[in-house]
């Protein structure tokens, strides 16, 4: 499945988040393709899940947007989205 991580520029925070999600999914044995991208380019992309922080999530029309409380804290990221990713993976 394809996940996009989003921040304002697509080169800082979202890239860190992408690395963390890859790590988490690897540990859980879930196959994912994670790409980081800037907010504007993310609009209208066809992916399974968009992951970002609250401020940016509110501005998305995409139906599958998951919110993380942190771009770098693995524990929080895991708590926030692992179940969502698992559910998606089993669809």
């Amino acid at each position: 499945m394809k996940i996009l991580t989003v921040c304002g520029n697509g080169i800082g925070s979202s890239l860190m988040l992408a690395m963390k999600i890859e790590e988490i999914c690897k540990e859980e044995g879930i196959q994912v393709d994670v790409e980081s991208i800037d907010f504007n380019s993310a609009q209208g992309k066809d992916v399974d899940l968009i992951v970002t922080v609250k401020e940016l999530a509110e501005q998305f029309e995409h139906k599958d947007v998951a919110v993380v409380r942190s771009y770098i804290n693995k524990k929080k990221i895991k708590e926030d989205i692992l179940e969502i990713i698992k559910a998606k993976a089993n669809q």
């Binding site: 800082g12 800037d38 401020e55």
Partner: peptide
């Protein structure tokens, strides 16, 4: 401008900010 427009998400951990812009 990035911070003014996109908000404070660059504060990524307690007391820690990571300002940046596009290449």
């Amino acid at each position: 401008k990035n911070i003014q427009k996109m908000g404070q998400y660059i504060v990524i951990a307690p007391g820690l900010a990571m300002p940046h812009a596009r290449p």
